[in-house]
């Protein structure tokens, strides 16, 4: 990844224009040819730096409900439980974390009712009893980018 790639990633994380020729228009802003932007993005995607180039939607504005769930899962059942949880389409993130609540996942569902049904199913299927729901009650900041320009490597 060179400096131009870093600059390109910093800018394209903030947004790609909703215009007929978005890469060309971005190129005008940073002084690179649109064709080169396309080639660089293709390469960054193939190398695994980019996960996706597409629309980021507000689940709330689409009428969806989301929550964060923390669970305590014993080590011998950890992957079995994770597999059950991951089978749900609405589970978008699932991580092991260093706490007695060692499994944390986010769940998005089309309604509060559907969300409750999924959580009940997860409880039944996994038999896990120590579980807390942590839906966001208030949101203070959503930065749209990380500064890539100051990376150490």
């Amino acid at each position: 990844m060179d400096e131009i790639d870093q600059q390109l990633l910093t800018i394209t994380q903030q947004g790609i224009p909703l215009t007929s020729t978005p890469y060309h228009d971005l190129g005008q802003q940073i002084g690179i040819d649109g064709e080169e932007i396309i080639e660089r993005l293709k390469k960054l995607k193939n190398n695994g730096y980019i996960r996706r180039i597409g629309g980021i939607f507000s689940s709330k504005r689409l009428g969806y409900i989301s929550t964060l769930v923390a669970m305590e899962v014993s080590e011998d059942r950890f992957y079995e439980v994770a597999k059950i949880i991951n089978s749900y389409l609405g589970v978008t993130h699932n991580y092991r974390r260093n706490h007695s609540y060692n499994l944390w996942f986010t769940l998005i569902a089309p309604s509060q009712q559907r969300l409750a049904v999924i959580l009940k199913e997860i409880k039944e299927k996994t038999g896990i009893t120590r579980m807390i729901e942590l839906p966001a009650e208030r949101f203070f900041k959503l930065a749209v980018k990380l500064e890539l320009d100051n990376r150490g490597d």
Partner: peptide, 24 residues
């Protein structure tokens, strides 16, 4: 698409990084 953007349905069209790959 521009209408969704105005209404807040679409936050943006953008690059989404694999943070671990990108150095974080």
């Amino acid at each position: 698409l521009n209408k969704y953007k105005e209404e807040g349905i679409l936050r943006r069209v953008a690059v989404i990084l694999n943070h671990r790959e990108a150095g974080f």
